[in-house]
C-alpha cells in the first residue's frame, strides 16, 4: 500500500512498530510506534501518558511529511 501511495505522489509517513517490515515493504518515511496491538498508547499507562505519546509521535509523522529526504529514513521519537 505504502508503495502505491508514494508512486501516486503522496508522501506517506508509515507509522509502525516493526521497522524492518516497513523497510522491506519500501516505506520511505518511517515513524516507530510502541507495539502492534496498541501502536500509539500503552493501555497499562494513564490516559494522559498515552495522549502525550500519541500526540508526540503523530507530530513526528507530520514533520516527516514536510521533510525532504534522500533515502529511506527512520524519524526518531522522544516518547
Amino acid at each position: 500500500m505504502v508503495k502505491e501511495l508514494e508512486k501516486a505522489g503522496f508522501p506517506v509517513a508509515h507509522m509502525c512498530n516493526l521497522v524492518p517490515v516497513s523497510q522491506s515493504v519500501g516505506a520511505n518515511r518511517i515513524v516507530p510506534t510502541i507495539s502492534i496491538p496498541y501502536p500509539l498508547g500503552d493501555p497499562s499507562t494513564p490516559p494522559a501518558e498515552q495522549w502525550k505519546l500519541r500526540y508526540h509521535r503523530v507530530g513526528v509523522a507530520l514533520e516527516a511529511l514536510a521533510t525532504n529526504i534522500e533515502q529511506q529514513t527512520i524519524f526518531p521519537v522522544r516518547i
Binding site: E4, L5, F10, A13, N17, V21, I36, P39, L40, A61
Partner: peptide, 23 residues
C-alpha cells in the same frame, strides 16, 4: 489494488499527504 481504489478518493478531496498506520 486496494491502494489504487483508495487513491481516487484522496485525489478528489485534494489530499496532499498520508499517514499510514500498520499494526
Amino acid at each position: 489494488r486496494m491502494a489504487q481504489e483508495i487513491i481516487p478518493h484522496l485525489v478528489a478531496d485534494g489530499v496532499t499527504a498520508v499517514i499510514l498506520g500498520s499494526t
